[in-house]
Design a protein around this nucleic acid. Structure first.
Length: 207
DNA sequence: TGTCCGATTGGT
DNA sequence: CCAATCGGACAG
């Protein structure tokens, strides 16, 4: 894992839009101990004004504290009593915006991922937010930790050019009213590792 | 303390 | 299409 160079802190410069960061995270590497994967799918959650965001309306609870913390840290929560979802906090403390990591292309520790995921094909190991957390061994005990150092971190990898990025509405946010259709899901065009086949509402990767 | 629900997944 | 499964949020 030493071969991976950790992402520089200025990746999370205050002036960067969370959607820009969501796109720039594509192609980067997520490492946890002996496993690693290339990010191929993300979603942006824009804080207090975004009905799909956990912090909508300024909601703040113990579980959400990491989301209100410094950028470059993880916000991990348990969903449906059995799966975990990993988010990367994108803005300075007090500004609860983040990027949900939805799929990875496995690149290290494939045997471990296969065992943990119970999946037969590598394309499925990390295809979905719950699956990738299971494959990398991530759970809420890691919520709040920095992703810029330590055994759990983000590495530079190679950013994906805009021409190779597509966007669509976010998945599973029908409860978000007027915000449910915002095209803030980003994924690598043609990647067989994304969580689901691109739907019909694909748009250019803009906002 | 009691009830309700979910940024998912896997099986029917 | 639907059940699994439980922590967290909130009402009382």
């Amino acid at each position: 894992m030493d071969a991976f160079r950790v992402l520089e802190p200025d990746f999370f410069a205050p002036e960067r839009d969370t959607r820009e960061i969501a796109r720039d995270l594509l192609g980067r590497i997520l490492v946890h101990e002996e496993t690693a994967g290339r990010i191929v799918e993300t979603e942006a959650y824009l804080g207090v004004t975004d009905r799909a965001c956990h912090a909508w309306g300024g909601k703040r609870t113990p579980r959400l504290e990491p989301l209100y913390g410094p950028p470059g840290h993880a916000y991990i929560y348990l969903i449906y009593g059995m799966y975990h979802c990993l988010n990367v906090v994108t803005k300075p403390a007090g500004q609860p915006e983040c990027v949900l990591i939805r799929a990875l292309e496995p690149i290290a520790g494939l045997e471990i991922m296969a065992d943990r995921s119970g999946q037969a094909k590598a394309e499925r190991f990390c295809a979905g937010p719950g699956r990738l957390c299971r494959a990398l061994g991530l759970d809420r005990s890691l919520s709040g930790v920095s992703l810029l150092s330590g055994p759990f971190f983000l590495s530079e990898g190679s950013p994906v050019p805009g021409s190779e990025i597509l966007s669509s509405p976010r998945v599973g946010v029908d409860y978000a009213g007027e915000d449910k259709d915002r095209p803030w899901r980003f994924f690598v065009k043609g990647s067989p590792f994304v969580s689901k086949a691109p739907g019909k509402r694909i748009t250019p990767a803009d906002w």
